[in-house]
Amino acid sequence: AQVDRSLKGDQNCTVCHDESWRTPVLSIYQTKHGVKADERTPGCQSCHGGSAEHQNDPGNKSPDVVFGAKSKNLSSGEVRNAACLTCHESRILPRTNWSGSQHETRGVACSDCHDIHTPNPRVLNKLTQPEVCFACHKTQRAQIRRFSRHPIAEGKVTCSNCHNPHGSTGPTLLVKNSVNETCYTCHAEKRGPFLWEHAPVVDDCTNCHTPHGSNLSPLLKMRPPMLCQSCHSGDHGKNLYSGANLPSGNATTVNGRLPLASQSPPAQGNSRSCLNCHSLVHGSNHPAGAKFQR
């Protein structure tokens, strides 16, 4: 049935759920969902249902749709989502890709992340949004604290810069069609196309990088030379580099500094390792840059 979305209709609820209620229910009128002059704006019963039983017996019967996460009468995710999708599936800020998305199929409900009544929802603030996502994504919560990281804890980059939690055409809910397209929104200099392309780079940035944080800068899965030697076994890529080749290692003499014979080639095993020379690993546009040195 058509609900009365006017303030008069809301009074069915606000007569009890007024300014003295334990949570500031009325603050929804500060939000977009409270602008009554917008003819699309819902009323209380648009989302919570007509809730006739609750009105008749508020002490024992709950509203038709209950969003409170800790409520014993919490409605199912499907029911809660249906309340939002009434408007947001196709008509207003459509969440076209929600249906069948990773979050939808794992039972996540809109209200698990969105706090509709507050004028300062955490999920819409770059600084506080990660707190919402980390309620489930514990691994990423730890990763953003690592030595090498995106400025997520500082609120300069936030989860939704890369991910669309409402569903997307990309992998892992990325905002673009692919990992690389997503990364290029901030790192366009890596896009090329370059004269000399590096196959794993154009394939997928996450072949080498782990975007949420790493102990190895810059956001690397492994430190060179180990990372490079995962794929390169020719020429000096074949060589064994180990702690023996570092200053004071077994392959050095004279205060641990003088390389012993040719077994301590520091350029490949020390400092930036392979990247001391092959620094343009994302691609080179120099006609002599096929080895990513120019």
Partner: peptide
């Protein structure tokens, strides 16, 4: 922090970089 990458970039440690 301790990182072996810094060991080889001090004066007297590297040979060709």
């Amino acid at each position: 922090a301790a990182d072996w990458a810094y060991l080889g970039i001090q004066f007297g440690t590297g040979t060709n970089y």
